[in-house]
């Protein structure tokens, strides 16, 4: 099936690229990403902006244009957009994390500090996120703005969130505390061997070296890829196959001298 907003309800990569402000702008701090690409008759975003950063004009079916240098990322437009199509992305939050502020209209509301699952435009789980702020704007007629922190590499991917499910909490690799969902996500992103999953998630890299989780990881890969379990080979084994004190390694090193 063709991709794009009118075919699957999600912006395609090209459509996403067309709505993103320049990369340099993201580095400067929070900025609005207006995911509105159809000529529908609507303009509350333009009027909501105290900095005149959004331009639609008299012809209200025109698509909103963001003047990114004027936008301060306040979120008033996101709270007022009837289409729930505006997001505030703050790439300056920390070296590794970005903050996404999104409009939210479901109960129960999340609480600040909650760990949730960040999901993509198509509702697929992407990465865990933390609720930073839950804010109610009076002009928003009830729409809540929720700010979540996400890994920076997903700041253009995550556009909503859901509560953690049982599988999101179910730990497969107990040494590294890697959940079933995290492993499934890695497989969906292309890791289709136990080794790939290990490299992507650290599952199997802990004290037990995969003894307890290896089979489970194979099973999950088989489920996700449709391969039969016997096709999923174990990872390459390396010494030491049991945890040993570092001193032992040092001693071995000494013997060879």
């Amino acid at each position: 099936m063709k991709c794009g907003l009118i075919y699957d309800g999600c912006l395609s990569q090209a459509e996403t690229a067309s709505v993103l402000p320049a990369a340099e702008r993201f580095a400067k701090g929070p900025v609005a990403v207006i995911e509105c690409i159809q000529d529908i008759p609507c303009n509350p975003c333009e009027k909501s902006c105290p900095h005149q950063a959004i331009i639609i004009g008299d012809n209200i079916t025109a698509v909103p244009r963001l003047q990114a240098d004027r936008c301060v990322g306040c979120g008033l437009c996101a709270a007022q957009c009837p289409g729930l199509a505006i997001f505030i992305v703050d790439a300056s939050y920390s070296a590794t994390e970005a903050v996404i502020t999104l409009p939210y209209e479901y109960y129960p509301l999340p609480k600040e500090g909650d760990i949730v699952m960040g999901v993509s435009r198509s509702g697929a789980a992407v990465a865990k996120a933390r609720v930073l702020k839950v804010r109610r704007e009076t002009a928003a007629y009830g729409t809540i703005l929720v700010s979540i922190t996400v890994p920076k590499k997903f700041m253009h991917t995550i556009r909503s969130f859901r509560a953690l499910r049982e599988a999101d909490k179910r730990i497969v690799c107990r040494c590294e505390e890697i959940t079933e969902t995290e492993i499934r996500l890695a497989v969906r992103q292309g890791a289709n061997t136990v080794k790939d999953v290990k490299l992507a998630t650290r599952a199997g890299m802990g004290a037990c070296q995969g003894t307890s989780c290896r089979r489970e990881i194979s099973r999950i890969i088989a489920e996700e890829t449709g391969a039969s379990p016997e096709e999923i080979l174990p990872p390459r084994f390396r010494m030491p196959v049991r945890p040993i004190p570092l001193a032992q390694l040092a001693a071995e090193e000494g013997k060879n001298d």
């Binding site: 907003l5 009118i6 075919y7 699957d8 912006l11 509702g123």
Partner: peptide, 17 residues
């Protein structure tokens, strides 16, 4: 073979899975 209503309405549903 395409979504008949506004894309932004469909997008809300897709985000919710």
């Amino acid at each position: 073979d395409s979504i008949r209503g506004y894309g932004v309405h469909a997008a809300k549903l897709r985000r919710a899975g």
